[in-house]
Protein backbone atom coordinates (compact mmCIF):
# COMPACT_ATOMS: atom_id res chain seq x y z
CA UNK A 1 0.00 0.00 0.00
CA UNK A 2 1.26 3.47 -0.83
CA UNK A 3 1.71 5.67 2.13
CA UNK A 4 1.25 9.35 2.01
CA UNK A 5 4.58 10.50 3.26
CA UNK A 6 4.53 13.90 4.81
CA UNK A 7 8.22 14.56 4.57
CA UNK A 8 9.11 14.23 0.89
CA UNK A 9 11.84 16.85 0.77
CA UNK A 10 12.01 17.54 -2.98
CA UNK A 11 8.25 18.09 -3.04
CA UNK A 12 8.53 20.47 -0.10
CA UNK A 13 11.32 22.47 -1.69
CA UNK A 14 9.55 22.67 -5.03
CA UNK A 15 6.36 23.93 -3.42
CA UNK A 16 8.09 26.53 -1.26
CA UNK A 17 10.51 27.75 -3.90
CA UNK A 18 8.35 30.44 -5.57
CA UNK A 19 7.41 32.06 -2.26
CA UNK A 20 10.95 31.92 -0.89
CA UNK A 21 12.46 33.31 -4.09
CA UNK A 22 10.07 36.27 -4.17
CA UNK A 23 10.59 37.11 -0.52
CA UNK A 24 14.35 36.71 -0.69
CA UNK A 25 14.89 38.67 -3.90
CA UNK A 26 12.45 41.49 -3.29
CA UNK A 27 12.67 41.94 0.47
CA UNK A 28 15.58 40.29 2.22
CA UNK A 29 18.32 40.92 -0.31
CA UNK A 30 17.49 44.64 -0.58
CA UNK A 31 17.11 44.86 3.21
CA UNK A 32 20.65 43.66 3.69
CA UNK A 33 21.87 46.02 0.97
CA UNK A 34 20.08 48.84 2.78
CA UNK A 35 21.67 47.84 6.06
CA UNK A 36 25.10 47.99 4.45
CA UNK A 37 24.44 51.35 2.87
CA UNK A 38 23.26 52.67 6.24
CA UNK A 39 26.90 52.46 7.32
CA UNK A 40 28.12 54.54 4.36
CA UNK A 41 27.86 58.23 3.59
CA UNK A 42 26.41 57.57 0.14
CA UNK A 43 24.78 60.65 -1.33
CA UNK A 44 23.83 60.70 -4.99
CA UNK A 45 24.46 64.43 -5.14
CA UNK A 46 28.08 63.96 -4.08
CA UNK A 47 29.91 61.85 -6.70
CA UNK A 48 32.74 60.48 -4.59
CA UNK A 49 30.56 59.58 -1.60
CA UNK A 50 29.88 56.05 -0.46
CA UNK A 51 32.63 55.58 2.07
CA UNK A 52 32.19 53.38 5.09
CA UNK A 53 31.45 55.55 8.12
CA UNK A 54 30.32 52.99 10.70
CA UNK A 55 27.57 54.36 12.91
CA UNK A 56 27.97 58.00 11.93
CA UNK A 57 24.56 58.17 10.19
CA UNK A 58 22.85 56.73 13.24
CA UNK A 59 24.51 59.06 15.70
CA UNK A 60 23.94 62.03 13.42
CA UNK A 61 20.26 61.16 13.13
CA UNK A 62 19.88 60.68 16.86
CA UNK A 63 21.42 64.10 17.44
CA UNK A 64 19.27 65.79 14.81
CA UNK A 65 16.40 67.81 16.34
CA UNK A 66 14.33 67.17 13.21
CA UNK A 67 14.50 63.41 13.79
CA UNK A 68 13.05 63.76 17.29
CA UNK A 69 10.48 66.26 16.10
CA UNK A 70 9.27 63.89 13.38
CA UNK A 71 9.32 60.87 15.72
CA UNK A 72 7.40 62.85 18.31
CA UNK A 73 4.84 63.85 15.68
CA UNK A 74 4.37 60.24 14.57
CA UNK A 75 3.94 59.16 18.18
CA UNK A 76 1.47 61.98 18.77
CA UNK A 77 -0.59 60.76 15.82
CA UNK A 78 -0.47 57.23 17.26
CA UNK A 79 -1.41 58.43 20.75
CA UNK A 80 -4.43 60.36 19.47
CA UNK A 81 -5.60 57.91 16.81
CA UNK A 82 -5.46 54.64 18.74
CA UNK A 83 -7.81 55.45 21.64
CA UNK A 84 -10.21 57.26 19.34
CA UNK A 85 -10.51 54.58 16.69
CA UNK A 86 -10.67 51.76 19.21
CA UNK A 87 -13.40 53.56 21.13
CA UNK A 88 -15.41 54.17 17.95
CA UNK A 89 -14.76 50.63 16.75
CA UNK A 90 -15.83 49.22 20.12
CA UNK A 91 -19.05 51.25 20.28
CA UNK A 92 -20.06 50.19 16.77
CA UNK A 93 -19.10 46.58 17.57
CA UNK A 94 -21.39 46.69 20.63
CA UNK A 95 -24.17 48.01 18.42
CA UNK A 96 -23.65 45.35 15.76
CA UNK A 97 -23.54 42.64 18.41
CA UNK A 98 -27.24 43.30 19.07
CA UNK A 99 -29.89 41.65 16.98
CA UNK A 100 -31.96 43.98 14.84
CA UNK A 101 -33.31 43.91 11.30
CA UNK A 102 -30.87 45.56 8.89
CA UNK A 103 -27.80 44.76 10.94
CA UNK A 104 -26.06 43.08 7.99
CA UNK A 105 -26.51 46.13 5.78
CA UNK A 106 -25.17 48.46 8.47
CA UNK A 107 -22.15 46.23 8.88
CA UNK A 108 -21.49 46.09 5.15
CA UNK A 109 -21.72 49.86 4.76
CA UNK A 110 -19.82 50.86 7.85
CA UNK A 111 -16.61 49.17 6.69
CA UNK A 112 -16.47 51.08 3.40
CA UNK A 113 -13.93 53.73 4.51
CA UNK A 114 -11.54 50.94 5.45
CA UNK A 115 -11.52 49.28 2.04
CA UNK A 116 -11.01 52.48 0.04
CA UNK A 117 -7.49 53.47 -1.01
CA UNK A 118 -6.02 55.58 1.85
CA UNK A 119 -4.66 58.00 -0.70
CA UNK A 120 -8.23 58.58 -1.91
CA UNK A 121 -9.42 59.10 1.66
CA UNK A 122 -6.82 61.80 2.16
CA UNK A 123 -8.10 63.59 -0.91
CA UNK A 124 -11.75 63.03 0.04
CA UNK A 125 -11.24 64.86 3.32
CA UNK A 126 -9.05 67.49 1.77
CA UNK A 127 -12.05 68.35 -0.41
CA UNK A 128 -14.51 68.20 2.52
CA UNK A 129 -12.31 70.58 4.50
CA UNK A 130 -11.64 72.90 1.58
CA UNK A 131 -11.60 76.50 2.80
CA UNK A 132 -13.31 77.99 -0.22
CA UNK A 133 -15.99 75.52 -1.24
CA UNK A 134 -15.79 72.69 1.31
CA UNK A 135 -18.80 70.76 2.53
CA UNK A 136 -17.88 71.11 6.21
CA UNK A 137 -18.00 74.87 5.82
CA UNK A 138 -21.37 74.63 4.07
CA UNK A 139 -22.78 72.39 6.77
CA UNK A 140 -21.58 74.48 9.68
CA UNK A 141 -22.76 77.67 8.00
CA UNK A 142 -26.18 76.16 7.46
CA UNK A 143 -26.45 75.38 11.17
CA UNK A 144 -25.16 78.82 12.08
CA UNK A 145 -21.99 77.50 13.73
CA UNK A 146 -19.71 79.73 11.65
CA UNK A 147 -20.47 83.04 9.96
CA UNK A 148 -17.83 82.79 7.27
CA UNK A 149 -15.93 79.96 5.60
CA UNK A 150 -12.88 78.70 7.48
CA UNK A 151 -9.64 77.24 6.07
CA UNK A 152 -9.63 74.15 8.27
CA UNK A 153 -6.24 72.87 7.24
CA UNK A 154 -4.35 76.10 7.66
CA UNK A 155 -2.99 75.90 11.20
CA UNK A 156 -0.21 73.32 11.84
CA UNK A 157 -1.93 71.77 14.84
CA UNK A 158 -5.21 71.68 12.90
CA UNK A 159 -3.39 69.67 10.24
CA UNK A 160 -2.37 67.10 12.84
CA UNK A 161 -5.90 67.07 14.23
CA UNK A 162 -7.42 66.32 10.83
CA UNK A 163 -4.76 63.74 10.04
CA UNK A 164 -5.83 61.94 13.21
CA UNK A 165 -9.49 62.18 12.21
CA UNK A 166 -8.90 60.85 8.71
CA UNK A 167 -6.69 58.02 9.96
CA UNK A 168 -9.39 57.16 12.50
CA UNK A 169 -12.07 57.29 9.82
CA UNK A 170 -10.04 55.05 7.53
CA UNK A 171 -9.07 52.48 10.12
CA UNK A 172 -11.81 52.19 12.77
CA UNK A 173 -13.46 49.29 10.93
CA UNK A 174 -10.54 47.01 11.69
CA UNK A 175 -10.82 47.20 15.50
CA UNK A 176 -14.57 47.02 15.00
CA UNK A 177 -14.38 43.71 13.14
CA UNK A 178 -11.86 42.24 15.56
CA UNK A 179 -13.85 43.30 18.62
CA UNK A 180 -17.16 42.19 17.10
CA UNK A 181 -15.70 38.73 16.55
CA UNK A 182 -14.48 38.81 20.14
CA UNK A 183 -17.90 39.83 21.43
CA UNK A 184 -19.61 37.07 19.50
CA UNK A 185 -17.35 34.48 21.02
CA UNK A 186 -18.37 35.41 24.58
CA UNK A 187 -20.88 32.81 25.75
CA UNK A 188 -24.32 34.22 26.55
CA UNK A 189 -24.37 32.25 29.83
CA UNK A 190 -21.70 34.50 31.30
CA UNK A 191 -23.93 37.53 30.86
CA UNK A 192 -26.88 35.64 32.29
CA UNK A 193 -24.86 34.51 35.29
CA UNK A 194 -23.71 38.07 35.90
CA UNK A 195 -27.29 39.30 35.58
CA UNK A 196 -28.48 36.75 38.15
CA UNK A 197 -25.74 37.97 40.47
CA UNK A 198 -27.36 41.38 40.16
CA UNK A 199 -24.97 43.11 37.77
CA UNK A 200 -26.59 45.75 35.58
CA UNK A 201 -25.63 46.18 31.93
CA UNK A 202 -22.91 48.74 32.62
CA UNK A 203 -21.35 46.52 35.29
CA UNK A 204 -21.55 43.55 32.93
CA UNK A 205 -19.74 45.58 30.30
CA UNK A 206 -16.83 46.41 32.58
CA UNK A 207 -16.70 43.20 34.61
CA UNK A 208 -17.46 40.57 31.97
CA UNK A 209 -17.21 41.89 28.43
CA UNK A 210 -14.11 44.06 28.48
CA UNK A 211 -11.85 41.61 30.40
CA UNK A 212 -12.81 38.84 27.99
CA UNK A 213 -12.03 41.06 25.02
CA UNK A 214 -8.44 41.70 26.05
CA UNK A 215 -6.88 39.32 23.49
CA UNK A 216 -8.87 40.85 20.61
CA UNK A 217 -8.05 44.28 21.89
CA UNK A 218 -4.34 43.45 21.94
CA UNK A 219 -4.41 42.39 18.30
CA UNK A 220 -6.31 45.50 17.26
CA UNK A 221 -3.89 47.75 19.10
CA UNK A 222 -0.82 46.15 17.58
CA UNK A 223 -2.07 46.29 14.01
CA UNK A 224 -3.31 49.83 14.41
CA UNK A 225 -0.06 50.92 15.99
CA UNK A 226 1.84 49.85 12.89
CA UNK A 227 -0.68 51.50 10.61
CA UNK A 228 -0.62 54.85 12.42
CA UNK A 229 3.10 54.87 13.15
CA UNK A 230 3.88 54.27 9.48
CA UNK A 231 1.25 56.62 8.08
CA UNK A 232 2.09 57.93 4.60
CA UNK A 233 -0.66 57.86 1.94
CA UNK A 234 -3.23 59.82 3.94
CA UNK A 235 -0.82 62.54 4.93
CA UNK A 236 0.39 62.70 1.36
CA UNK A 237 -2.93 63.77 -0.12
CA UNK A 238 -4.45 65.44 2.94
CA UNK A 239 -1.77 67.90 3.94
CA UNK A 240 1.70 67.02 2.66
CA UNK A 241 1.15 68.48 -0.78
CA UNK A 242 4.20 66.49 -1.70
CA UNK A 243 3.55 66.10 -5.38
CA UNK A 244 6.36 65.79 -7.89
CA UNK A 245 8.63 68.78 -7.43
CA UNK A 246 6.49 70.40 -4.76
CA UNK A 247 7.68 71.28 -1.29
CA UNK A 248 6.77 68.79 1.46
CA UNK A 249 4.74 70.42 4.21
CA UNK A 250 6.99 70.41 7.32
CA UNK A 251 4.08 70.46 9.80
CA UNK A 252 2.76 67.01 8.94
CA UNK A 253 6.07 65.38 8.19
CA UNK A 254 5.81 61.93 9.75
CA UNK A 255 8.56 59.32 9.89
CA UNK A 256 7.64 57.75 6.56
CA UNK A 257 7.42 61.10 4.79
CA UNK A 258 10.74 62.09 6.34
CA UNK A 259 12.28 58.89 5.06
CA UNK A 260 10.87 59.46 1.57
CA UNK A 261 12.22 62.99 1.51
CA UNK A 262 15.66 61.93 2.66
CA UNK A 263 16.04 59.22 0.05
CA UNK A 264 14.18 60.48 -3.00
CA UNK A 265 14.40 64.25 -2.63
CA UNK A 266 17.69 64.84 -0.83
CA UNK A 267 19.32 61.71 -2.29
CA UNK A 268 21.00 60.96 1.04
CA UNK A 269 20.98 57.21 0.56
CA UNK A 270 23.23 56.37 3.50
CA UNK A 271 21.38 58.43 6.03
CA UNK A 272 17.98 57.43 4.62
CA UNK A 273 18.94 53.78 5.02
CA UNK A 274 19.96 54.40 8.63
CA UNK A 275 16.63 56.13 9.25
CA UNK A 276 14.68 53.18 7.90
CA UNK A 277 16.53 50.88 10.26
CA UNK A 278 15.82 53.19 13.17
CA UNK A 279 12.12 53.12 12.26
CA UNK A 280 12.30 49.36 12.10
CA UNK A 281 13.85 49.11 15.53
CA UNK A 282 11.13 51.34 16.94
CA UNK A 283 8.35 49.21 15.44
CA UNK A 284 10.08 45.93 16.15
CA UNK A 285 9.05 45.48 19.74
CA UNK A 286 5.43 45.68 18.73
CA UNK A 287 5.99 43.77 15.48
CA UNK A 288 7.57 40.75 17.10
CA UNK A 289 4.69 40.66 19.54
CA UNK A 290 2.18 40.51 16.67
CA UNK A 291 4.13 37.79 14.99
CA UNK A 292 4.06 35.57 18.05
CA UNK A 293 0.31 35.93 18.03
CA UNK A 294 -0.08 35.10 14.35
CA UNK A 295 2.52 32.42 14.39
CA UNK A 296 0.62 29.80 16.32
CA UNK A 297 -2.33 30.04 13.98
CA UNK A 298 -0.81 29.13 10.65
CA UNK A 299 1.41 26.20 11.55
CA UNK A 300 0.22 22.66 12.12
CA UNK A 301 2.03 21.45 15.17
Amino acid sequence: MRTFSRNNLSFIILMLLPALLLVTIFVYYPSIATLISSFTNENLRIPSSGKFVWFLNYTQLLMKPEFWQVTGRSLLIVACTLPLEILIGFLIALLLNENFPGRGIVRALVILPWILPPVVNGFLWNWLLNGEFGALNGLMYQFGLIDKYVFWLQHPSAQIFWTVIVQTWTRFAFPMIILLAGLQSIPQELHEAAAIDGANRIQQLFKVTIPLLTPSLAVAIMVEFISAFQIFDIVWTLTAGGNVGQVINPYTKTLMVFNYQMVFRDMKIGMGSALSYLIMMMSMIVGVFILRNLYNRGVDK
Binding site: S31, T34, L35
Partner: peptide, 29 residues
Protein backbone atom coordinates in the same frame (compact mmCIF):
# COMPACT_ATOMS: atom_id res chain seq x y z
CA UNK B 1 0.44 19.41 5.81
CA UNK B 2 4.09 18.55 5.46
CA UNK B 3 6.58 17.81 8.17
CA UNK B 4 10.18 18.93 7.92
CA UNK B 5 12.92 20.42 9.97
CA UNK B 6 13.17 24.21 9.79
CA UNK B 7 9.44 24.48 9.15
CA UNK B 8 9.01 27.02 11.91
CA UNK B 9 11.94 29.23 10.87
CA UNK B 10 10.86 29.15 7.21
CA UNK B 11 7.32 30.15 8.14
CA UNK B 12 8.72 32.90 10.33
CA UNK B 13 10.93 34.04 7.45
CA UNK B 14 7.89 34.71 5.27
CA UNK B 15 5.63 36.10 8.01
CA UNK B 16 8.25 38.57 9.22
CA UNK B 17 7.42 40.71 6.18
CA UNK B 18 4.11 41.74 7.66
CA UNK B 19 5.34 43.98 10.47
CA UNK B 20 8.57 44.90 8.66
CA UNK B 21 8.58 48.60 7.75
CA UNK B 22 8.72 48.75 4.01
CA UNK B 23 11.53 51.31 3.84
CA UNK B 24 14.07 48.84 5.11
CA UNK B 25 13.99 47.10 1.73
CA UNK B 26 12.73 49.98 -0.36
CA UNK B 27 15.87 52.08 -0.47
CA UNK B 28 18.05 49.42 -2.07
CA UNK B 29 15.18 47.80 -3.92
Amino acid sequence: RMKFQLKDPVFFYIMLLMPLPIWVSLVSL
